[in-house]
Computed example of a mutant assay.
Amino acid sequence: MSAHVKESELESLLLRVVPGLADQWQGATPDEIEQIEHLAGRPLPSFYRWFLSRMGNSMGRLAYPTLDFSAQRALACHAEKWVASEPRFLFIAYSSDEVMPLHAFYDLEAPARADALVTVRDALGNEQHDRFETFREMLAWGAFLQFRVGIMPQQCEGMITGEPAGLLSRLDPVMNRLGFTQPVPTGTYCRLYERADAAMICSSPPSADFEGSQVFTLGGGDEGTLRRILGEIATEPSLEVEVDEWTPKLG
């Protein structure tokens, strides 16, 4: 599948689930994009170019509370020598978290599907924490959590575990049988599922160490709907389901 098709699918999802996004997002200028590519010292991942062209100046309601992904912020941090240019890591988001500011970087030596791995770390370059295999999946996951799963009357979260090899490939047929579709293509460490009355996200850090587990959040109309979905998943011999929390809490 071409990068253009993937971006079209993501754009359709975002415009569908994020209210008013088409009137809110604002792209960076071509000059700003070229300046960022110059700092990277190599061609930008094509998805990042798409992101900057669509919302490099404003993400509208899709904006993260403590992460600033704007082109202006990235360029300003470089201009102020707050962050250094590196051959491998490209600074893409400034964290304003007062307790533990972990800023977002692309790992340009971990490309995937016309995109690249997103990791977070402090400004000094200490221990990094890999978050998503691609920035595309990070955006889709966040939007789906907030504007699709998060608006459901009843939600629950927990863990799906199983044999590491192909865990999600075994979950996919179960969800398909339950009438769920996948609005955007994803890789080994992330899934988005939806049907008219329910939606679910799954993810794990992009590492072979986590391939046998997926953290999930499932939303639907009521407790019964969610229990029936989880019950069907649990009937798959190679999958186990553990629920850790219900929102709102059950009586």
Rank of each mutant, 00 (worst) to 15 (best):
F105I: 06
P185S: 14
E9Y: 05
G56L: 00
P185Y: 15
R113Y: 14
L90H: 02
R73Q: 09
S238E: 12
A71N: 10
S8Y: 03
R136A: 15
F51Q: 03
I229Q: 07
D115W: 03
A74P: 00
G179T: 15
G125Q: 06
P87F: 00
G179A: 11
M55P: 00
L117I: 04
R191P: 03
Q35C: 09
S8L: 11
Q214M: 15
P153T: 14
F216G: 10
V99M: 14
E223M: 11
F89V: 06
G220D: 05
A140L: 10
P183M: 07
Q154R: 13
L67Y: 07
S203Y: 10
Y64L: 08
L90C: 05
E109C: 15
E232T: 03
Y94I: 06
A76I: 00
F51A: 04
L117W: 04
T134S: 03
P237A: 13
V174M: 12
A165M: 14
D68Q: 06
G251S: 12
E9H: 08
N126T: 11
E194R: 02
P101I: 07
L145Y: 03
E211V: 14
F132K: 02
V215F: 11
G166R: 13
P206H: 06
N126D: 08
L108R: 12
P248I: 06
Y64V: 01
R177A: 15
Y106F: 06
R73K: 06
S2G: 08
L171G: 05
L44E: 04
W141Y: 11
L117S: 01
E127L: 10
M200Y: 08
H129F: 11
P45I: 09
S12P: 00
M1L: 09
C202G: 02
F89S: 05
V241M: 02
L171D: 08
V120N: 10
V215M: 06
A112G: 01
R61A: 09
A199Q: 02
A63N: 01
Q35K: 13
A40S: 01
I36A: 03
V83A: 13
H4N: 01
S85D: 09
